[in-house]
Amino acid sequence: MSRLDSMLRRLSAQRDGLNWAAAQTAGQPGDALDLGLGNGRTYDHLREILPQRRIWVIDRALNCHPSCIPPAEDFLEGEAEPMLARLAEQGAQIVLAHYDFGFGVKDQDVAEAARLSPHLARVMAPGGLIVSGQPLAGFTPLTGPDSIAPDRYLFYRA
């Protein structure tokens, strides 16, 4: 598979997974969380499909497209662990999270996801869903939408 086809497959899986998770959590109280703003595409999609929810964003730096800058009060800039601790201290209850941190080196990305999993668990509402590009630890794995190939994107319940 070409890198272009692989990217298109990943982006389609991401969109389908987020849409699925939004439908699954409709009516549940809580906020959303985008872990890894990047250029803001996912955040922009979350704003569209979750207009009624506050969307927290965590990233090391604000480097997104100007149209995708989150409100200052919802953007936590810095390393994920202290930012998740800050959310937990504020009593955040996340009903839908998207985990998209990574260095682009699979072993490092998997290790970071495992290390951050307990910190993410502290902010998740009971029964909340996590859509992730990396394997997470300590959550209940779910089968996502049929349109997504197994292991292309991962789904968890808190």
Rank of each mutant, 00 (worst) to 15 (best):
P145Y: 14
C68K: 11
F139Q: 01
L46H: 08
A26M: 12
C64P: 05
A26C: 11
R3G: 04
G30A: 14
G36F: 13
S2M: 04
R122I: 05
G133N: 09
Q28D: 07
N39K: 14
A26Q: 15
S132R: 03
L8M: 14
A149M: 12
P135H: 06
Y156I: 04
F101G: 03
A72N: 07
R157I: 05
R3H: 03
F139I: 00
P51V: 10
G36H: 11
L116C: 03
F101S: 00
L35S: 05
R115Q: 11
A23C: 09
Q24H: 10
D109K: 02
A88H: 08
Y153L: 14
S67T: 08
Q108I: 09
D100Q: 01
I58T: 05
G27R: 07
A80W: 03
G38R: 08
I49A: 12
E77V: 08
S67A: 13
N19G: 11
E77K: 12
Q28S: 06
H119E: 09
R54Q: 08
F75S: 11
Y99T: 00
S67M: 06
E73C: 04
W20M: 01
S12M: 02
F103P: 00
R53M: 02
G144T: 13
H98I: 05
D107A: 13
A149D: 15
E48Y: 01
R10F: 14
V131L: 06
L136N: 02
A26Y: 00
A158F: 04
W56E: 03
L8Y: 01
Q52I: 00
G36P: 09
L154I: 09
G104Y: 11
R115V: 02
W20D: 00
L18H: 00
R54V: 04
L35T: 03
R53S: 01
R15F: 12
S2N: 15
G127N: 08
T143C: 13
T42E: 04
A22G: 13
A21S: 11
A13W: 06
T143P: 06
I55N: 00
V105N: 05
D109T: 00
L62C: 14
G133D: 15
N39A: 13
G91P: 04
Y99M: 00
V95E: 04
P150S: 11
P82C: 07
L87A: 02
Y153D: 06
A72S: 11
L129A: 05
W20L: 00
